[in-house]
């Protein structure tokens, strides 16, 4: 089976659906039409650009260019993690914590997957590196954002309880232990849900793509399974690093709860 190319006309047809939805939103005063159209336009521009960039990258397999691309992806993901926090850490920590955690987990796991699991030669072959890294970053990003948001929000809400424990002589680790555990758990929920329903309720995006492109279904299934397992590992390790670093940052060297290191709630 060959992949059937899509013409601009085909895409325009799909776009009319969104246009219809926007018109409906305007008619029913849902107030979401504008945002819907902007988001659709953004995805159009971003994906077209990505297609162009990847065409260049795939054509020459240049490590510096690939490194640059990976850094841009990381930088945007880091910003996105920060933007999703209701209460973020002040200063460099706000951006750095999520970004470093993602770097540690996604980049390491992508590298290990390329060298040990798939065994691509050279390991940085862009056709494998970029999609794999993208999927790992995207999912780790959600996990870390949820976990960190949960950590700072709960610590803020439960200030009295945390300090009650500190006052009674508990160490900072004891005082934050339950909150830390819950934050970590919340970061892992999305991937656990994804793995639970994979193949029954949802046909995961990557597998769908491979099947459309003509891969044998069994191969597509195996790749999808590998990706899910890698994502689980990446989300878990990333959330672990972020929550550990974040909870450490909530206390100073005298084990005081320092909520002044977290910004106030954003409306």
């Amino acid at each position: 089976m060959e992949l059937i190319p899509l013409s601009p006309w085909d895409l325009a047809l799909a776009a009319t659906l969104v246009g219809l939805l926007a018109a409906l939103s305007w008619l029913l005063h849902l107030g979401i039409g504008r945002r819907l159209l902007i988001a659709a336009a953004r995805s159009g521009v971003q994906l077209t650009l990505l297609g162009l960039v990847l065409r260049v990258l795939f054509a020459q397999t240049s490590p510096p260019l690939l490194g640059l691309m990976a850094l841009v992806m990381l930088a945007v993901a880091g910003y996105e993690v920060m933007a999703r926090q209701q209460r973020r850490f002040r200063g460099l920590w706000g951006y750095g914590l999520g970004t470093i955690s993602m770097f540690l987990s996604s980049f390491t796991i992508t590298f290990l997957a390329l060298t040990l699991v798939i065994q691509v030669h050279p390991w940085y072959r862009p056709q494998y590196l970029i999609p794999l890294l993208g999927m790992l970053l995207g999912n780790t990003m959600s996990g870390i954002a949820i976990a960190l948001d949960n950590l700072t929000r709960t610590a803020w809400d439960q200030r009295g309880r945390i300090e009650a424990r500190l006052v009674l002589g508990h160490s900072w680790q004891e005082a934050i232990s339950e909150i830390r555990r819950d934050a970590l758990r919340s970061g892992l929920i999305p991937i656990i849900n994804a793995m639970t329903t994979a193949g029954i309720v949802s046909l995961p995006g990557m597998m769908t793509g491979q099947i459309l492109a003509g891969s044998p279904p069994m191969e597509a299934a195996k790749y999808q399974l590998m990706i899910l397992l890698l994502i689980a590992g990446g989300s878990g390790l990333g959330s672990l690093a972020a929550v550990w670093g974040g909870s450490r940052r909530l206390f100073d060297e005298r084990e005081r709860l320092r909520l002044d290191r977290v910004t106030p709630k954003r409306s």
Binding site: G160, R161, E163, A164, V167, R254, E255
Partner: peptide, 20 residues
């Protein structure tokens, strides 16, 4: 001394008590 040992020693009772 470590802060948690100090706090155990000085016995602070806040105006509002919290329970976890």
């Amino acid at each position: 001394m470590p802060a948690h040992r100090w706090r155990r020693m000085v016995g602070y009772l806040p105006a509002e008590s919290y329970w976890w």
